[in-house]
């Protein structure tokens, strides 16, 4: 099978049965923002704004390079933004403005 044929048949997250490293029994308690991100995902699902399947596809759509570099909940946040843009619920510009505002607010809180 050619390498492109393999890529076509397997999406980046479709890894069942592939060779992989030894299992390292890693775990970490969720950071507060990660837990909030999880709560946000659940609430978005309840309201049918983004369901679990849309979220999974949104993460896959980030592509394998980003998927490899982002942490689990970073992928979720990035996927939410893209999906909400796609659905016309958020506009990229309003998110950018909000992020600047949030960042300033957080820096002021840290300076206190």
């Amino acid at each position: 099978m050619s390498s492109t044929e393999m890529l076509l048949k397997r999406l980046p997250n479709d890894i069942g049965g592939l060779p992989a490293d030894r299992i390292v029994q890693t775990d970490h308690p969720l950071l507060p923002w990660e837990k909030r991100c999880h709560a946000l995902a659940d609430v978005l699902d309840f309201h049918k704004i983004i369901n679990a399947e849309e979220k999974r596809r949104g993460v896959a759509a980030l592509g394998s390079e980003l998927m490899g570099k982002l942490t689990y909940y970073e992928r979720w946040a990035a996927a939410f933004a893209n999906i909400l843009f796609e659905k016309g619920i958020l506009h990229p510009e309003e998110l950018a403005l909000k992020m600047t505002e949030v960042e300033r607010r957080r820096q002021m809180e840290l300076a206190l």
Binding site: R36, C37, L40, F80, L84, R106
Partner: peptide
């Protein structure tokens, strides 16, 4: 060209918020 699914080391909680944390709050 292959997905790595293990998370990089997480940043400590008292550091300045990461880009993605700010994104989550903003959304």
């Amino acid at each position: 060209d292959h997905p790595h699914d293990h998370a990089p080391i997480e940043s400590p909680a008292d550091a300045a918020p990461s880009y993605y944390e700010v994104m989550e709050t903003s959304i």
